[in-house]
Design a protein around this nucleic acid. Structure first.
Length: 423
RNA sequence: GGAGAAAUGGCAGAGCGGUUGAAUGCACCGGUCUUGAAAACCGGCAUACCGAGAGGUAUCGGGGGUUCGAAUCCCUCUUUCUCCGCCA
């Protein structure tokens, strides 16, 4: 969430910036400012009453020590009035606090200057397109047919055992998954990211820390008996390691990575979007996460974009980079680059990675801070990106590298798969 | 899952109803001394919010309660440790 101090100081700039999301948040912002003012009035009043009764309590303590019981009891009477007042004010303060956080939860992050304004994906900016469309002499099969032809994925078995969106990977299909995960992790490690294998279920505090809760709980699987959530992305456990952390100085640059399965309920999806591997309830992903000093965060974002570019190029995939417009960006993001690979057989672009800078939006909820030179605490910037999500990469690999002889495995993967062809 | 014990500042560890935001030690930072270092000595050293400041308020695992007053008493949740059971 946005910092209340920032809203106080830059109200107009924030309202203006949020307009890029094609929604007007001036009402919410004004409400926050008003509630904040009320809160401060009530809070100040409460504190002065608390100060007064603390004072009296100390006096009573002294009187009892001196054996002046009568005087002490008299002083007690004075506090009863204060107590009543305190109770009322305490409730009022809590009420205003709730109002403020409720409003704060409703306001998304402010897009940074280079983010284009816009309502939907139609307004996204294509920053770069690399590679070229593969041309096929014969028929280009979509990946679900290729998967069937070469026995790589068993969707029906998944339906039988679990449900739609939970495929079995079989034979070389399973080995390809394992190869991609290892390849992506090794590349991340080469780029300086420390590897973690995190828990796949997280508690409520973690869901709130990274912003999945309270508003998006419908997207996560919820193990209600233990009140734990299946992670929708490794971002959740990886970033939450730094919840309530104060880094001791300004000299830090935290780069971590992790592979996890990801679980998403994807309520409301339908049609060709969910065909084959396009959208699953469980999928595998290698995530990269960074915690940076605010002055370094843009450079870190660029590095992450470069990292993903390198991966896609090594896999020989035709891709493009989009700078998402305000309206298409995630709630918590200040700027997001999406990577899409071209699916030759489906004749459409598939999103395979999303790299975002959250500035202090996540850190504020997480209470992730660092100590400045002058011993003040200041919020860190957080970033994350997929590097990469497997299913759509597999879809694109199968479709784009299909030949009459079979599917050609990119050279960079061969050491990991142990085979050059899927035949 | 059953039985018991515990949770205090960066760490260790006092305090068990009244000027206790918290003794003491270690670590850390600054200073004196020293050619330099060590030692010794002096000083500093939690977080958040409100306030221009003085200062105020809250926080001793989390939440609630008793009391004029709670780190200290009560309830509850969580976590850790020991023993038993189960188990990859």
């Amino acid at each position: 969430m946005l910092e209340i101090t920032r809203i106080r100081a830059e109200k107009d700039a924030i309202i203006e910036g949020l307009k890029k999301r094609a929604v007007d948040y001036s009402k919410e912002i004004e409400a926050i400012i008003a509630a904040d003012e009320q809160w401060r009035v009530v809070k100040t009043e409460l504190e002065s009453i608390q100060a007064e009764s603390n004072q009296i309590s100390k006096e009573i303590g002294l009187l009892f020590k001196q054996g002046k019981v009568a005087e002490a009891n008299k002083a007690k009477e004075r506090t009863t009035v204060l107590k009543e007042k305190e109770q009322v004010l305490r409730e009022s303060v809590a009420e205003w606090e709730h109002k403020i956080t409720d409003f704060l939860y409703q306001v998304p992050n402010v897009p940074i200057s280079i983010v284009p304004a816009g309502k939907s994906e139609a307004d996204n900016e294509v920053v770069e397109e690399v590679g070229f469309k593969v041309t096929f002499t014969g028929e280009a099969l979509p990946h679900w047919e290729l998967a069937d032809k070469y026995n790589l994925i068993d969707f029906e078995m998944g339906v039988k055992v679990t449900g739609a969106g939970f495929p079995f990977y079989t034979g070389k299909g399973a080995k390809l998954q394992r190869a991609l995960i290892n390849y992506f992790l090794n590349e991340a490690e080469k780029a300086g990211y420390e590897e973690f294998m995190p828990p796949l279920l997280v508690n409520e505090d973690s869901g709130i820390g990274t912003g999945q809760l309270p508003d998006k709980e419908g997207q996560m699987y919820h193990a209600t008996v233990d009140n734990l959530y299946l992670i929708p992305t490794a971002e959740v456990p990886l970033t939450n390691m730094y919840r309530d952390v104060i880094l001791p100085n300004e000299d830090f640059s935290i780069k971590i990575t992790g592979y996890t399965p990801c679980f998403r309920r994807e309520a409301g999806s339908y049609g060709k979007d969910v065909r084959g591997l396009n959208r699953l309830h469980q999928f595998d992903k290698v995530e990269i996460v960074r915690v940076e000093h605010p002055k370094n965060s843009i450079a870190a974002l660029d590095e992450m974009v470069q990292h993903v570019k390198n991966l896609l190029e090594s896999l020989g995939l035709h891709y493009r980079i989009l700078r998402l417009c305000g309206g298409d960006m995630g709630f918590t993001s200040a700027i997001t680059y999406d990577f899409e690979v071209y699916s030759a057989a489906q004749e459409r672009w598939l999103e395979v990675s999303s790299v975002s800078l959250f500035e202090t939006f996540q850190a504020n909820r997480l209470k992730l801070r660092f100590k400045t030179e002058s011993r003040k605490t200041q919020l860190c910037h957080t970033l994350n990106g997929s590097a990469l999500a497997l299913p759509r990469i597999v879809a694109a690999l199968l479709e784009n590298h299909q030949t009459p002889e079979g599917i050609k495995i990119p050279a960079c993967l061969v050491p990991y798969t142990g085979f050059e062809w899927i035949k």
